[in-house]
Design a protein around this nucleic acid. Sequence first.
RNA 1: GGGCCCGUAGCUUAGUUUGGCUGGAGCACCCGGCUGAUAACCGGGAGGUCGUCGGUUCAAAUCCGACCGGGCCCA
Length: 994
Amino acid sequence: MADDEEGPGAPSPTEVQERVLRYWEATGVPARAYGGRPDGPIFRFTDGPPGVNGPPHLGHTEPGTLKDVQLRYRRMRGDRIVSAKAGWDCHGLPVEIAIEKKHGLKSKREIEAFGVEAFCEECRATALDYATVWREMARRQGYWLDYDRPYRTMDAPYIESVWWALKTLFDRGLLEKGHYVLPYCPRCETTLSSHEVAQGYREASDPSVTVRFPLEDAPRDLLVWTTTPWTLPANLLVVAHPDREYAVVRRPEGRDVVLASDALPRYFPEGAEVVARLTGRELAGAAYRPPFSAAGPGPGRYRVVLDGFVSATEGTGLVHCAPSFGPDDYRIGAREKVGVFDPLDSRGVFGEAVGIVRGRSFKAADPILLHDLAARGLVVRSETLRHTYPFCWRCDHALLYRAIDSWFVRTSRITDALVRHNRATRWIPPYLRDGRFGNFLTEAKDWALSRSRYWGTPLPVWVCAEGHPTCVGSFAELAERSGAPLPPGFDPHRVTVDRIVLPCATCGAPSRREPYTIDVWFDSGSAPFAQYHYPFEPGPFDPAAPLDYVSEAIDQTRGWFYTLLVIATAIFDRPAFRVSLTHEFLLEETGRKMSKSKGQVLEPLALLDRFGGDAIRWLFLSQDFTAPIRVGPTTLEKAGHRTLGTLRNVVAFHLENAAADRLPPAGSAPAPDARLDRWLLSRLEATREDVTAALEAYDPRPAATALRELVDDLSTWYVRRSRPRFWAPADRPDRRAAHATLSYTLAEVARLFAPLAPFTAEWVFQEVRGTRFEDAEASVHLAGWPARGAERDRTLEAGMAELRALVEVGRELRQRAGVRSRIPLAELVLFGEASAELEGLGAEGLELLGDELHVKRVIRVPAAARANYPEAAWAVREEGGRPIAAISRTPSPELLEEGLAREVARRLQQARKELGLRYLDRIRVTVSAPGALGAALRARRSSLASDLLAEPFEIVAEPLEPGPDVRSWDIDGTRVSARIVRAVPTDPRAGAGP
RNA sequence: GGGCCCGUAGCUUAGUUUGGCUGGAGCACCCGGCUGAUAACCGGGAGGUCGUCGGUUCAAAUCCGACCGGGCCCA
């Protein structure tokens, strides 16, 4: 700040950020800080690995901020961070889809023609395409992790650890093959897990049709409702509810129809003729003609069966059942032993079995099938329904549910343990534990783990012709079982691993690898141990210890949080994490959802450049991030302003003031006498307590609030009230005490801010301590967390709060008296007994009050007679019918004069400022003021001159000639003008200027 | 249809767990003041059916119930 290029005032947030980044990078501060103190208590953390084959959006800065606050706090506290590694999620469909697009590949057949090995190589090459952009975003928001040595889910050691985990599950009977109905993406030609599906629900229009199923042995038709006409060719059964009543309704247009009685109003006008009523049970067994004959005959097919799942609120109470295409359908089909019929190929296209839609994709078959049914008079009603439907979370294609072979993690067998371990974790906000997350656990379905894809961790299971599985848990085991050493630099991906044939562990017959990769969420859920190549290499991972802290967005209740818990429970039988801090998504400034697919994305790097990382951090931290937060240029502009901007300005004031007399930074904690100083130190300690408690509790919100209030107090009370002390000569003890107190406080404030606003905090710390951004050791982030400071003086804090309330009362009285603050008033009277707290401030308190309100005398009158203070002479404030305070209304001529002289002084100060002068710049002044005002000025000439650093300071009666150096004002009807000239130019360039 | 969360001034919100003074504050607006760091600050004004209705209570933004509206998750 001593540089002459830098003018007075605080630097912009961007300047602060640039300066700090340069310092950090030049001296290597982050690398020293990442891991915390090597011998400190362990703080277990894992960064959830983002997929980085695409660019980040602004929303990704929010979890980074919340993680970073806690990590910085822990480091300053002296903890060892395990681990401080960044991680990248490298596998999976997002990467594959990018390569498919690049080469115009449209199906798995085309990928195989292209060559799986080459395809995977390209996936590997592009998986981290945007890692540098992500890293840059972290850099500019001040998210400190080790990005030089990240863990990567595609690395061989990582995969080996995942294999170890899978083998552990396999040995415990928790990894099995099954044939179930699963969500399936026909474009990607693979199954998805339920938590992947959960990410992709959206509004869609589908047909809603009611179709006649004619009964074989009665002149009646069953009315069957469906929203998926394409499943009708696969129909094998109709399901009725056993206990509901069904009605047989006479229809003029054709045969009688059967439907649930309570569905009648939805289909027919009141008064429809009901010819019979019967229960579902009585319907059971009735045979019908299926709408299409594709599936062909089979035992038990095409009859009414019973089940309780039939909905009472939708449809006809008679449900079409195609066992291939729905979980309930499958269950009922299996129970009734009618087999399955699936006319679709792996791409969801109809084959030969259903001639009229052969070659059509499943959804495209709907209108053709409906047309055919209508032509046969079987369609009773056909409408369009808007409802939520699942789409592929990565390629956006409509999903279907189909029965298919898949490998499962049997999460349904460990539900109790999942629930128990979840109960031992702390969620912020707390309702997630038993709410959204807890509910999901109790309903946990088996985790469909396998994917029929290419770029992923290969499922380490080999199967012989007999179907015996052999699970491999390490590369050594693979080599041993296969009887041949693995090639040097063995890469476990497809196709290399597919070529390895093993003897079956059960029967010795040759076994081939199951051609699946696994769900990428198993990769990321393994991160806490796989990043250390556990259990193959020594490392800090402790199988008994949950992570101390994770933080992600709310959607991860179905994603990473979930897979972490499943894996921790199934393998280590413990909770996955002690504390989860979960935030809601960001909204655009307009309140709309931030969408990555719809363009209009706020470019995070540009915004971070423009407003600085601390602005966006503060935006998240000072609001309730458990609710959606709106972000945009306008909100960011304001975000850091109030608190961080004010702090920068206090520091700028302090620096300039200290530089003026070359006062050194405070060393240790000062022990000042002045009440104002002691009050500030007490407030500082109170804030330290609050911030520490908040961060100990993992919730930065109260910390941000406490810091904001401290900065407010610092700026609007401490500095303002201390101004005369700061202007005093440098050898005055009071000046030194004020300086030391402010210097010390600002350095401590910097440490308290460091976890939340690391750039601003670093700048404050360096500037206030005069360390000049030179030495890594001097970084605030290596400075340690503030220890307990001076004992709080709660009486003083309360007394000062009361005093400030009295100032507000006084201001109101002045307003009512109609006298501007610049004109001193004679007397302020306080009525009644002072509180003990206020009493504690002593005479100094009253002086301070008088000073602040510009009143010559403040007295306290215990027992007041209201009549002694008539309205004409006094403005009186009453509360509850009793007078609280009174101020004398009318200033004497002397007071008036003093006020006017002050007014002139103020305008001259204003002029100094407008001329861009610094504290120590001297000026030459000639003031023209007539009559009494002139006399008043003359009487105060010497003090005015020294205040204004004006020499000479002349006062004349005659008007000044107008000119460029002359300003003139009208002060309460008196014409005043002044010529102000810089005495000695401080800046050579300014001196040579125009 | 089920679960969870939310609804306080034009906007952002504190207060709700544990019922109690006149429901605070910031931004924006109007009037006034102050200002040798500040896009700062201070006083006054205007702006509130505390989503609606009902209940409990001496007392309800706060507790209970129903409903309305919004969001998210799941069927």
